[in-house]
Design a protein around this nucleic acid. Structure first.
Lengths: 189, 189, 189, 189
DNA sequence: CATGAATGAGGATTCATTCAT
DNA sequence: AATGAATGAATCCTCATTCAT
């Protein structure tokens, strides 16, 4: 590697993009390796299989996102503040890397359901927990926390989707005030 | 056909299920035909290709849903009533046929984006229009109608997703009161 | 059949055309039956298989042509007259039915070699015999009669081919004087 | 490659033989690859499709033959000499590689018509030109040069065909004196 | 680490043929 | 005789993966 980019990083960056653009099944090893400027066989120096590449791309990033997500809310107190921080974190993360965001959150869940290790921290679960805690603490009305978390998540994710498909032109950070307010309304019931 | 079920219907029912369960790329013609109890070649009497099957399954049902969806709101006046009717229609539709609902609304948009004919009525666009009309009529505050529509749609779709994955146990119809109230809050801003 | 055309004739006419246009392997039963306006299964009322159709089309017409060809020369005396009659017969036959001519004489011989029954009269063999007789009778110089017959046949067949592909615009009958003279020169050595 | 034969060459040699023996449509990828001792998939590293293989086999060899053919006649002056050189070249080429000759010149023209690039030099056209030039120069009588070229070509091609099918036992080179004399008679009219 | 030709199982599709109506 | 839906073997082709260099 004379260009200073490590092969593995190149593979991951390209694979991520192609998985999102075409889908995991439709993006071939040849697509990825040729876009990455490496030989097909070279992929297998770094990943045992295409599935492992897809899975690793997911787990690694998903876990790291979830950890950060978790830390964020832990440092704050008050459900309102936690929710706000989470929404803003989502928005910032989307704007920073929409492709990774799409890979982690917008793709058919059935594909990636199998990628989530139960032991890993899971962003959605953290949201559920924050909401459940808020209910337990009397800050927000008691309801099924999964239901409430889904509604909140839906607000943000669907806006992200609309942004990906060009139906909305603002960045998510620009929209984050609206999203925070809306998320809180949803949580407050 | 001795069992009174027409081959084409059998193909469609099975294909829909397998496309949702495994994904379009992963569901093979052999999977579909063997589950349908027919020969592989028989598929091609009814559909020119697997892609045409997937596309037709989408367009036909999507268009018919959207038309119904449209009619529903047209018969009512007042943004609140229209939104309520739409949310309830979504919920009822989900409960009646969760597999079809998943195929139409929960799958990777990039796959099916190409399936939507621009001329067809489109459920999301109808929602956008209802919201835009409500804003024009002063019933709800002025904002980007695409943004508001996305947030509303997200609430319902993410709950549907959670239901599909067993994170929520109630039927969508049981949840529709909550969803209507939440949707309206989101719209009112 | 209300249009007075018998199904079998319709099949044969269409099959002949498609076999010549696309090749036997490339012309499908569906092509033929749909062009003939009948059902696919109907073919099998008249022919046991596609191969039998191709073979029968060949043998029947080839044998009938060869018989006529044979009679023609038998009725004449003198090699020159026989050759002339044969060439003119070829030309007239081509003009009358270029598609049938192409099927019988211009298609890959390997395909149709297997169609010729050794016992059947064979146009080329008749030509060989006429030439051999002419040599035996001292009318034309002694050479390998197969060689001479091939050269003569080549003159006519290649002109027919050129005509089929539009490289020549005159009908074969219009060209038959030239062809007769040339054929005779070839035979005379 | 341990046997020193390159895969691509092996494919081409075998494919050529099978295309001639069985026809392009009838020779399957499996036939070719198994005769070549390679895997089916290996074909596709070298050719995008069976059709591309057939086409490339044709174009490459046809163009190279035609160029040589052209050069040959250009170096000579006098129609008689040119014709003689061309006929002898055909004969030598046939004897050197009867399979390639058959593939290029004896197969159903409709199959390979589409393989000829209009810009490529074309053996038949060269013959037409030589004849047309001879007419213009007063060396041979004026007639439709396409007609004369067809007759000359027919003489040689039909003898080649007879040789392929074992109706003639001499090699074409052995027959070339006769063919040259005959061709010239045809041209002289 | 990197290469890329070779592999071969598996997938979509075609099509001659059958058969119940 | 005619139909045309159904069949399934056979075909072309793809692509994840292996391995000799």
């Amino acid at each position: 590697m004379r260009d200073g980019t490590k092969t593995k990083e190149k593979i991951e960056r390209i694979a991520l993009r192609l998985f999102v653009e075409k889908g995991i099944a439709e993006a071939t090893i040849r697509d990825i390796s040729s876009a990455a400027g490496i030989a097909e066989g070279t992929m297998y120096r770094h990943y045992a299989s295409k599935e492992e590449l897809a899975r690793s791309l997911f787990s690694k990033n998903f876990a790291s996102f979830s950890r950060e997500f978790d830390r964020f809310q832990k440092e704050l107190s008050g459900t309102r503040k936690k929710i706000e921080a989470m929404v803003r974190h989502f928005c910032a993360f989307f704007d920073k890397d929409p492709i990774l965001f799409s890979y982690l959150f917008l793709h058919a869940r059935h594909t990636q359901a199998s990628f989530v290790e139960p032991k890993d921290p899971h962003a959605l679960n953290i949201l559920v927990k924050v909401i459940a805690d808020g209910m337990a603490g009397g800050e927000i009305p008691e309801r099924n926390p999964h239901l409430v978390a889904s509604m909140v998540a839906g607000v943000v994710l669907q806006v992200a989707t609309a942004r990906v498909y060009g139906e909305i032109n603002e960045s998510l950070v620009e929209l984050s005030d609206v999203l925070v307010v809306t998320a809180w309304k949803v949580v407050k019931g």
